[in-house]
Computed example of a mutant assay.
Amino acid sequence: MNPRAGSNTGPTPHTLAFVESPVQLLNVLEWAHSRNLHRDDRDDRDDWEDREDHRSVRGARNPEPGAGFTLVVLSPTDPMTRGQLRRMAELARKEGHTVRWEEARGGTMAPFRTIGGLTRLLRRAERMVMGDPFSRYVQLLLTITRASELVVVDDGTATMEFVGQLARGERLVRWHRKGGRTGPRDILFAPVSAAARRRLAPNADRRVEVFSAMPIDQAPDGVTLTANDFAWTRDRFGPPRVTKTADMVGTSLVETGVVDADRYLTAVQTLAATHGATRYFAHRRESAEKLHRLAVETGLEIVRPDLPLELIARRGPIGRTVLSFPSTVVHTLPLALSGTDVRVAVCDIDPAWLTDHASPRAQGFLSGVTGTATDVHRLATVTTI
Rank of each mutant, 00 (worst) to 15 (best):
V152R: 00
F189L: 12
L323P: 02
Q84L: 04
R207A: 15
L150E: 01
G66T: 02
F230D: 01
Q165K: 10
H357D: 15
T355Q: 14
H33K: 10
I312N: 03
V99E: 00
A204G: 14
Y137N: 09
Y137W: 13
A246Q: 04
R113S: 06
V72R: 11
A273M: 04
G222Q: 06
G116Y: 04
W353I: 07
T157H: 05
R100Q: 09
R120A: 14
M130L: 14
L271F: 12
W175L: 05
A147Q: 11
T81C: 10
T226P: 00
G299T: 03
H97Q: 05
T328V: 13
G116N: 04
E103G: 09
I216A: 05
F281R: 00
A313T: 11
V152Q: 13
D155S: 15
P3A: 11
V152Y: 02
G299N: 11
V254E: 00
G183M: 03
R168I: 03
T98V: 12
D229H: 08
I187P: 02
L141Y: 06
F162N: 01
D50V: 12
V223R: 00
T12Y: 01
A195C: 03
H176S: 12
L307P: 02
R45V: 15
A104N: 08
N36V: 10
M1N: 09
R236G: 03
A167T: 13
A5S: 13
R304E: 13
F134I: 01
L74G: 10
L188K: 02
G183P: 01
F325W: 13
A261D: 15
L291I: 05
M160Y: 00
R197F: 05
A110P: 03
F189T: 03
D229S: 08
E301P: 03
R171W: 00
G83R: 14
A125S: 15
G116L: 08
S75L: 15
R315S: 13
E52Q: 13
M109A: 10
L172G: 07
E255A: 09
Y137S: 12
V73F: 04
R82E: 13
G59T: 00
L253Y: 11
A5I: 12
R146Y: 03
C347D: 07
G96C: 11
R279A: 13
R146D: 10
S75Y: 15
G116D: 08
A158L: 10
E20I: 02
G180L: 12
E289C: 00
S367L: 11
L300E: 07
P65W: 04
S56N: 07
E126V: 00
H33Y: 15
L74A: 10
T77E: 11
R314S: 06
Y137I: 01
A204C: 04
Y137D: 09
V330C: 14
V23A: 11
R86M: 02
R279V: 08
S21M: 06
S327G: 14
A194I: 01
R113M: 02
D348W: 02
T182F: 01
E289F: 03
A67L: 06
T114C: 08
R39Q: 07
G164T: 11
T245F: 04
